[in-house]
C-alpha cells in the first residue's frame, strides 16, 4: 500500500479539472464570439466591407465617438465623486467605514432593472429631478432621453468599481509622509499633489480602466434612459440584430468595442498588473 502518493502525480492530473469549464466556455462563449467576428469579415462577401462601412458612415462613426466620449465623461465624473468619498473612508473609524462600505455596495444590491426603473421615474418629465431644478428656478430639465440622463444613472452604478480600488490604494498610504511634508514647509495642497495623489495612482488607474471598459458596453441603461437619436454603440448593435438581423454589421461594431476593451486592458496590464483582481468584486452588465 502506498499511503503517500508521489507529489507529482495528483498535480499532473489536476489540469483535467479545468476541462469541463473550458469545454462549456469554448462552446457557449468563445465559439459564438469567434462566429460573429468571422461573419463580420466573411459576410456578405469576404473582405473588410463591414468595417469600411463603419468608418465611412458618418452616423456610425459619430456613434463610436459619442460612446467613447460618454465613457470618458462617466469615468471622469465617477473619479471626481469617488476620490473624496474614498479618502473620507480612510479617515473615519471602523464603524463609520463599515457604513460607508455598505452604502457604496448599494448599487450591487439593487437589481439592474429595479435601478433603471428608479432612474426612469426620477428623470422622467415632471419627475423628482425636474421638479427639484424647477424649485431653484431652472426649468425644463428633463434628463430622460438624453446622454446626461444615461450618464447620471451610470455614474451611480460605477461608483463601487471606483471607490473600492481607490480606498484600497489609500489605506496603504502612510499619513506620516503628509506630516513630514508639512513640517518641511510644504503647504497642504502641495503635499497632497506631490505626495498623496501620486501614491494613490495605482487605485486611480485600476478604477479608471474598469469603469471606462464597463461603460463602453452598457446596453440596458442607454436603451431605457437614452434616445435613439443620440445612440451609443451598444444600442446600435442591439438594433442591428433585433430589427435587421444584421449580424455581420453588428459584429463589426462589436469588434470595435472588443478591440478598445482589450487595448485598455493591455495598457492597464502594463502599468498596474492583471485587472482580474479588481474586476472580481462583482460584474455588472447593464
Amino acid at each position: 500500500m502506498t499511503a503517500i502518493r508521489p507529489a507529482g502525480k495528483p498535480r499532473a492530473r489536476a489540469h483535467w479539472l479545468l476541462l469541463p469549464a473550458a469545454a462549456v466556455l469554448l462552446v457557449v462563449f468563445f465559439y459564438p464570439l469567434a462566429t460573429i467576428l468571422w461573419r463580420s469579415i466573411a459576410e456578405p462577401e469576404f473582405g473588410p466591407g463591414n468595417y469600411l462601412a463603419v468608418l465611412g458612415d458618418a452616423v456610425a462613426l459619430r456613434v463610436v465617438l459619442r460612446t467613447l466620449g460618454t465613457a470618458l465623461i462617466i469615468t471622469a465624473v465617477t473619479l471626481l465623486i469617488a476620490y473624496p468619498y474614498a479618502y473620507a473612508m480612510t479617515l473615519v473609524g471602523r464603524r463609520a467605514r463599515g457604513l460607508l462600505t455598505l452604502l457604496v455596495l448599494m448599487p450591487f444590491w439593487t437589481s439592474l432593472m429595479a435601478r433603471n426603473f428608479a432612474w426612469y421615474v426620477l428623470e422622467q418629465r415632471g419627475g423628482v429631478i425636474e421638479r427639484a431644478f424647477a424649485a431653484i428656478g431652472i426649468h425644463g430639465v428633463t434628463l430622460l432621453g438624453s446622454v446626461a440622463g444615461v450618464t447620471v444613472a451610470m455614474v451611480q452604478v460605477m461608483l463601487p468599481f471606483m471607490v473600492l480600488p481607490l480606498q484600497n490604494a489609500m489605506l496603504g498610504i502612510d499619513r506620516g509622509l503628509l506630516h513630514a511634508a508639512g513640517s518641511l514647509g510644504a503647504p497642504r495642497p502641495t503635499a497632497f499633489l506631490r505626495i498623496y495623489l501620486p501614491l494613490s495612482m495605482p487605485g486611480v488607474l485600476s478604477g479608471v480602466s474598469v469603469v471606462f471598459i464597463m461603460s463602453l458596453g452598457f446596453y440596458i441603461t442607454p436603451a431605457l434612459l437614452g434616445t435613439p437619436q443620440q445612440a451609443l454603440v451598444a444600442q446600435v448593435i442591439g438594433t442591428r440584430v433585433n430589427d435587421l438581423l444584421d449580424f455581420p454589421g453588428a459584429g463589426a461594431l462589436g469588434a470595435v468595442l472588443l478591440v478598445i476593451t482589450l487595448v485598455v486592458l493591455a495598457l492597464l496590464g502594463r502599468v498596474a498588473g492583471p485587472v482580474g483582481a479588481s474586476m472580481t468584486g462583482g460584474g455588472d452588465r447593464g
Binding site: L25, Y31, P32, I213, G217, R285
Partner: peptide, 27 residues
C-alpha cells in the same frame, strides 16, 4: 495556467452586448 484563468474570467470583462449578440447568433 495564467492565460487559461484569464480566459475563464473573460465573460465577466467583455462587453455584455457583444456577448449577448454573439450567443444569440449561434443559438
Amino acid at each position: 495556467r495564467g492565460v487559461l484563468r484569464q480566459l475563464l474570467m473573460a465573460p465577466m470583462i467583455l462587453p455584455g452586448i457583444v456577448v449577448a449578440v454573439a450567443i444569440y447568433g449561434v443559438f
